[in-house]
Amino acid sequence: MWTHLQIELYKIFRRPRTYLAFAAITALIAVIQVGLFMDGKEYTEFVMADFEGSFSVDGKILNGYFICYVILQLLLVHVPLLIALIAADMISGEANMGTLRVLLTKPHSRSAIVLAKFMASVVYTLLLLIWIAVLGLFVSMWVFGTDDLFLMKSSYVVIVKESDVFWRYAGAFCFAALSMVTVAALGFFLSFFAENSIGPIVATMSVIIVATILSTMNIPIFNTIKPFLFTTHMITWKEFFDFKVNDANEAIIGSIQNPDKIIRSSLVLVAHIIAFVGAAVLVFRKKDILS
């Protein structure tokens, strides 16, 4: 299994396509950082237009922590495409190249191959997120400095104390990793049903887009299925940036407003991952390789 995982990773990281994703992320983050560096004031003014009618906010809002939040908010919507690019290609790409049949004539069980391939997509996904963390968080912290994190929620404002922020990012990135692994699992599962990578990549994105629309639309008929859609839970990373207050409305440092929400979302996502990968194993064990 370990050897197999190494080989899969070797294959992933010898392909130019892999670095395309890292380059895309670098470019996207750089664009956001440069934009906010040049015109950040306008951006914050725009975001806070309504709020600033009655309050004046004093302090360095445009700090590294805030930038990273903006980056995550904008980027995590698009990262699934970059993940699908690799995960949805894991089986279909090999089927297309014809290497799948060579692979399967080697003395390994199909389940082991599937799991090694999935683990490789997970490692890729995690490296992608680490890269986002390095650029989005650490570079932003270095360039913009750090301060309290000022966030506008849809119906309230949260200011997270500087010393209370970093661990929340650690949690948020872990959660984002779980969401993205779910995307990887979906793409991976779909890659079993095609002999070219375009189909599963497009299918993965379509599923995500449709599910996101269902998660966003506030229509009663959809509301019943919302809790079961993984897209509803993918943005739960934001819960790390909301804390409890005491009776005097003072922030309780180190607390999370809805820890149960994070746990519930994590469970839903884990269930999706297990379902996708489990189904992939089941399908693949019996699948006739005709490519």
Binding site: T3, H4, Q6, I7, Y10, K11, R14, R15, P16, M97, G98, T99, R101, V102, L103, T105, K106, P107, H108
Partner: peptide, 27 residues
């Protein structure tokens, strides 16, 4: 050992790397 229809290998790898990779896959 088998070659099925087209000889299918990883096109982005060298001949040597392909051979080494499949050797490792065979343990």
């Amino acid at each position: 050992g088998a070659v099925i229809e087209k000889p299918d290998v990883y096109k982005y790898l060298s001949a040597y790397d392909n051979l080494k990779l499949f050797a490792r896959l065979s343990g």
